[in-house]
Amino acid sequence: MRTTFQDELALLEATLQEEGALVLRALRGAINALEQRDEELADEVIAFDDDVDERYVRIEEGIQLLLARQTPVATDLRLVLAILHINLHLERMADYCVTIAKLSKLVPEVDPGPRFVEGFEEMGSRCEEMIRIALDSFGNRDLEGAESLVDLDELVDRANRRVVARILELGGDPEMREYGLRMVVVSRALERIGDHAVDIGEQTAYLLAAEFREFTDASHPSPREA
């Protein structure tokens, strides 16, 4: 039954889920720091990234050893490759959370109005939902769940466009302009987190269907997206 090998695979997957839980906390921390202008919390999110990186490295090393020593094949091979990719996506997401936390510390003391914060809260909670679904559908080998991420991502993209439109309405005051520029990057970071969640869904589909396909293709949009 190759019990050692199966144990090692299960261990890698558990570490990956743990890394996912850390990313969720980083994202919630970053959004709260931004909304509440809490610099201390922002610093925690930045420092906290080391925990994610530690899992990232552990998974990388574990996969290297597993490939070298256990020569996985078939479903096992796809699982190892999927974990390798998802690991990178999660690590990127955590880096975006750090970007948001850093930007939240740099904003000038201006009041852009409550609707602004609402927009980020919406994007943030949608991204949280996407990460949860991405991790759960991978863990449960749930193709339908993985594919549902495309529609959820569309909602994040729309929220991103709304936020950018509001930024353009902020006016020409230099402090407000600086605030707007920084917030474009925050909005972009959240939008990218959603994209990475979709990419995790694609890895789940690859694992289950043994065929890699992009759910959406930015350079060849389907009629619905065009």
Partner: peptide, 21 residues
Amino acid sequence: MARDVTIPVDVGPAEIAQERK
């Protein structure tokens, strides 16, 4: 307030990995 960011997530897999080394 999401102060719980400092609470460590369950470190199970790390301990198991250490044991297996």
